[in-house]
Design a protein around this nucleic acid. Sequence first.
DNA 1: GGTGTATAGTTTATATATAAACTTGTTTTA
DNA 2: TAAAACAAGTTTATATATAAACTATACACC
Lengths: 153, 153
Amino acid sequence: MGLKEELNLSKDFVSVEHEALLNLYYTTICLKKHAAEFFAPYGLTDVQFNLMLLLSCHGGTEGLSQARLSEMMLVNRANITGLIDRLEKARFVRRTAAEDRRYNMIQLTQKGQKLLQKADAAYAKKVQKVMGVLNKTDLQTLIKACGKIRKNL
Amino acid sequence: MGLKEELNLSKDFVSVEHEALLNLYYTTICLKKHAAEFFAPYGLTDVQFNLMLLLSCHGGTEGLSQARLSEMMLVNRANITGLIDRLEKARFVRRTAAEDRRYNMIQLTQKGQKLLQKADAAYAKKVQKVMGVLNKTDLQTLIKACGKIRKNL
DNA sequence: GGTGTATAGTTTATATATAAACTTGTTTTA
DNA sequence: TAAAACAAGTTTATATATAAACTATACACC
């Protein structure tokens, strides 16, 4: 039961290469939708959770600049402005001035830390369940394949 | 050279499962950005190209309804309204009334067909080049892994 | 020490995406 | 057959995403 059957397509894919590409696209869309649903009860979007997780794992005490966040999330820095606006409005993060006054350092608030802790514990279990359908060898193979593709771009 | 190095992350991933999930996410983002750049010279976005390709491959002579397009693209039907609005404005597709007057049948115009033909020929080559970094066996393995994950959601 | 250049963040215009409420048209069913 | 239920498409409000133009700050170098 591949993508062709799931989408009720009338024709085969033109190549296994295209089929693989579309499998990556559609699988990621499904995973993102799943994540979005998962985080909704916490009052977060999947994107907001990911940003907060980056702050928690890689922010230390001083936080991360918006430029660094945009690098890590592979998004335009203009996008970070709006994300932080919304998270700041909800009091999950704060902007702090850095020595270099061009930078905003973004930090989790206590409220943000608490929420993240709860959400992350549940999310880690979810990831184990969702990706656990592949064994460790298959996961490593998948990681390698993705790495090769990115390197080839 | 994995994701950790590419993003200059200070910590390891908490599990191989999470690492694999993020590899899917990030690789797809990279592929989408690449596709967006590729289609820009044709005056198309990657999403617009995909919609037109579906019309070409699975639309036959009568076209596809917006509801069917939303199923195939895994997007909300509200989203299709705007996509078709923009493509219609550019005269790449047209809305046609169906017998069941609830439906819009969407068809490629001649202008749309011509553009698609040109873009698709070049795109097929691009896909071969990008995904060709994996051999046929690796591609099949990737397709199977993605299928297992989707089935497990 | 002032000028040019580079960097961080914001604003604006636009595209893609969702959910919810709504309109219109079809089908079911009582 | 009239009412209820369902289906397709649109509208509205909001979130995420980009590119381009802009502001403010920092730094390099003559």
